[in-house]
Amino acid sequence: MSAQNIAPELQQPLFEYLLRLGDDRLILGHRLSEWCGHGPILEEDIALANLALDCIGQASVLLKEAGTVEGQGRSEDDLAYFRDAIDFRNLLLVELPKGDFGFTIVRQFLFSTFSYFFLEKLQQSAHKPLAGIAAKTFKENLYHLRHSRKWLVVLGDGTEESHQRVQNALDELWGYTEEMFYMDQVDEALMNAGIAVDLQPLKEQWLSMVREALQEATLELPDPDVYQHQGGRTGFHTEHLGHLLAEMQILPRSYPDARW
């Protein structure tokens, strides 16, 4: 299925779906890029910049595809730089400020573990461009998962202080994990056409991989009844996103006629 012959009733859901995936990676990439020059060791400046580059690269192709599917002539840059917070579709998880190194690592681990199972399935999407993007992203994500899992274990099983810091980060971030499995009519319409992934069956797999890593890291699984925040998929964000976008979008918004 190419952009030209998408069933008309699927065009809007697919556009929306691509925005969700693209925005997740754009915003997470932005948060990761904030570490550049400020990491705890030089090796981590390099590694986190790698992760940021992957995420922004993935966002770029996903948003480009979103623009193609939408068919209104919007480029990936138009979508990144000329939408307001209420039109962004990323998870709340990825827009939270970068926090300390432990917070960044825990968030990355939770998201990369989810992405591992999600992208594995998405490679079979009936929308061929999306399947192709998923295959490339899956490979990049393997490194993100390995890197964040390694640090999760080191910090969890390091010193008393590091253990406490990552446990706190984990407890705080846990309330933003349920949203990764959020599905609505966008997913349902696309699932019927074989384009989108059914997220419900992934949850057990995700939890089991997380549990195994936490055990090795000597960390406690957070309270399962903790309140779960949602809203990113429908544009109901935290206040953090507006500030992030104000910074990210300042040049194209200030000089809309300029080319850079």
């Binding site: 890029s33 922004i56 770029s60 840059d77 910074e247 990210m248």
Partner: peptide, 14 residues
């Protein structure tokens, strides 16, 4: 980096 004016410029700078 966080204010680069396009995604391509952002990636090149990063």
């Amino acid at each position: 980096i966080t204010r680069a004016p396009s995604l391509r410029r952002k990636m090149v700078l990063l």
